[in-house]
Design a protein around this nucleic acid. Structure first.
Length: 646
RNA sequence: GCUGGCGUAGCUCAGCUGGUAGAGCAGCUGACUUGUAAUCAGCAGGUCGACGGUUCGAUUCCGCCCGCCAGCUCCA
């Protein structure tokens, strides 16, 4: 029999009969591997284990631990769910059902029927029954006509629409049990691999993601090869909900959003304001060290300012409507700070000797987000940017980008947050979305990429993610529920200098255009704090904690001592409270634990006599007594160094 | 904005098929003077999201609106 050469990930090669399948190869290595393998990567493409390999290839057997294995597993689970839905609700039309980061979904059209929680339970139970049959997923190559014929007969308009876009391509069907789907695969060997199933929720989703199309029902689910992993996954989801900044923000009295003021317009309570101002102080100091000058600008501006910048026609729909005066003059609640800053740049002639000019402001802006978009502090209608605009010469540009990226990295490092970096480019297929000359774009995109490469940033590229005036380096963070959000941003702008006719006099005595860098390390203070609350689960590092320590006198006899310690600590700049309520010490401790205050200082007769405090750390318990001065200095030290853990 | 779900005291929640509401915690008052995650007793607290309708009677049924949640779309 003819042989082919298979190369394994470790570089070793072995001969197999032509037409061997991934499963056969796995079996030849070990039974255990064959049992665990879900799919096989053949020359970089993921295949079914049952597919014949007919030529020399480099392969990698994919198991649950591999992303490719998980994706095949969840993709197959989506098909299993579709089979369950079809058997329970005949006539259901199917859209698409892909694997996603944490599970899978299927978009379905059930006509008038809205799925309920009870329906999900039924579908889930049916899936278990269907999985237990342990039937194979069978791949079949079809002609386009055969495929169309099948779905015409089945009367599934969505699949027919998908087929319209697949003329001339290889069309494959996958069938398991009673269900056949148009699908490029790959799939796992059989339904029996799916041991643990949970359907999570159902939500609306437009067909093909377009608002103009019909809204289908999307069922989200997740499956695992064993119950233990499902339980762990559900536990993590629960943990994420526990960290939800909206819940913690209320419990810890950080912020308030009330319909009395308006959706998306958070009010900062005293404790939240401490967090907010600590962040502002931190960044203001870092910026002063780096040559930024602070400015302050008003919250509204003449509408014409935004006509000049180009924001007004571009983003009319996401702005609050203009304020029109009786005399006809119109003002806009500012959606961004840059035009104001440009006016300050323009206020006097600039020489190359003055550049870079770095103008910074914690500036509050207002954007009319769609009502369904608001989300706690993370997506709001009024928010404060840690904004700055750097006006520099072209020669200075890369160095300034580098230093702003470094500042942003310092910020995230300070909080121990993992960020992903995205180079946000424009989408060349959708050019009307962007302003300015194409040549500027090409240049700006090249420059940010050069900086990213020189700094050895680990980045990915996002096409179509640029702002309308320039490409960006964006810093993205994941929230407690796994959604990713843009926080910090560094943007290169050649458009606004033209629009505002910004100039400087160069050494040649001629006028030149500066380049602008827009940058905001936090992005929005609101969003940043929302993410911070979830990141720390409400347990802020000491320097951000609204209350550093609470002093708990055991009895009235220690009250005066507690007050004296508090006075001394406050004089040193610490945020301390005294809880001298007439309650047992255990009661007070429990209460302050729930408030996540980092330290409790228990003081009774012993401490009074010895000038000490008995330190109890949040979640760690009793640490024993130390002198009140020693502990005060320790707190000051933790704050000064912005320690993440005490 | 769209689809679906939800809306009962400050918070967490109970209230079967319609007969004008209840618990725990928090709050207040009093007693207890307390040593590392809940001392005891009493009191007070709600136009059951809003407005219409059906009904002898609506927290409960219907409609509309508002708000919240999930997802979609959007995000300078």
């Amino acid at each position: 029999m003819e042989q082919i050469s298979i190369t394994f990930p470790d570089g070793s090669k072995r001969q197999f009969a032509r037409g061997s399948t991934g499963l056969q190869i796995a079996e030849s290595i070990s039974k255990g591997l064959a049992r665990e393998a879900l799919a096989v990567e053949v020359d970089g493409e993921v295949w079914d284990l049952s597919r014949s390999i007919n030529a020399d290839a480099a392969i990698r057997l994919l198991k649950w631990a591999d992303d490719g294995g998980k994706y095949a597993f969840w993709h197959s689970s989506a098909h299993l769910m579709a089979e369950a839905v079809e058997s329970l609700y005949p006539g259901t039309k199917f859209g698409i059902g892909p694997p996603i980061e944490n599970g899978f979904y299927y978009d379905i059209d059930m006509g008038d029927h809205s799925l309920t929680a009870e329906d999900l339970v039924r579908i889930e139970e049916r899936m278990r029954t269907l999985a237990a049959r342990d039937v194979p997923y069978v791949r079949a190559v079809k002609t386009w006509d055969e495929a169309v014929g099948y779905f015409r007969k089945k009367d599934d308009p969505y699949k027919l629409e998908l087929l319209d876009g697949l003329k001339g391509e290889t069309i494959t069907f996958y069938q398991q049990g009673e269900f056949t789907d148009l699908c490029y695969g790959p799939h796992i060997p059989s339904t029996g691999r799916i041991k643990a199933i949970k359907l999570l929720n159902v939500a609306g989703a437009y067909w093909r993601g377009s608002e103009k199309n019909k809204m289908l029902q999307r069922i989200y689910g997740v499956t695992f090869p064993n119950q233990k992993e499902l339980d762990e996954h559900l536990f993590r989801l629960e943990e994420a909900r526990r960290r939800d900044h909206r819940k913690l923000g209320q419990e810890l009295e950080i912020f308030l959003i009330t319909p009395a003021v308006g959706g998306g317009l958070p009010l900062w309570m005293p404790k939240g304001t401490v967090v907010r101002e600590s962040l502002i102080d931190f960044l203001r100091d870092e910026q002063k060290k780096r040559g930024y000058e602070f400015v302050t600008t008003p919250h509204i501006a003449n509408l014409n300012l935004y006509r000049t910048s180009g924001h007004y026609p571009y983003y009319k729909d996401s702005q609050f409507p203009p304020i029109e005066m009786p005399e006809g003059e119109k003002f806009l609640l500012k959606p961004m700070n840059c035009p104001h800053h440009h006016q300050i740049y323009l206020a006097k002639p600039r020489s190359y000797r003055d550049l870079p000019v770095r103008l910074a402001e914690f500036g509050t802006v207002y954007r009319y987000e769609q009502s369904g978009e608001m989300n706690g502090l993370i997506r709001v209608r009024g928010f404060t940017q840690d904004d700055a605009h750097i006006y520099c010469t072209h020669e200075q540009l890369k160095r300034e980008i580098t230093s702003t990226v470094e500042l942003t990295q310092l910020v995230f490092l300070t909080f121990g947050m993992d960020v992903r970096i995205r180079l946000s480019y424009r989408d060349d297929k959708n050019v009307e979305k962007y302003g300015g000359d194409v040549a500027f774009w090409v240049q700006a995109q090249r420059e940010i990429k050069e900086v990213a490469d020189e700094m050895k940033l680990d980045y990915f590229v996002g096409i179509g993610e640029a702002s309308f005036y320039g490409p960006k380096i964006d810093f993205m963070v994941r929230d407690a529920l796994g959604r990713t959000w843009q926080l910090g941003t560094v943007q290169v702008d050649y458009v606004m200098p033209e629009r505002f006719q910004l100039e400087y006099t160069a050494s040649d005595g001629k006028k030149h255009r500066p380049v602008i860098i827009h940058r905001a390390p936090f992005g929005s203070l609101e969003r940043f704090i929302g993410i911070l609350i979830e990141h720390f689960a409400g347990e802020f590092p000491l320097w951000l904690a609204p209350v550093h320590a609470v002093i708990l006198p055991v009895t009235d006899a220690a009250k005066d001592y507690a007050s004296a310690v508090a006075r001394d600590y406050r004089a040193a700049g610490l945020r301390v409270e005294v809880d001298d309520r007439n309650e047992k010490i255990g009661y007070k401790i429990r209460e302050w634990e729930t408030k996540k205050v980092p330290f409790m200082l228990v003081v009774g007769e012993k401490e009074l006599a010895s000038g000490t405090v008995a330190v109890r750390q949040h979640k760690k318990g009793d640490l024993g007594a130390v002198t009140k001065e020693a502990f005060r200095d320790r707190l000051l030290d933790l704050i000064r160094t912005k320690a993440l853990t005490a």
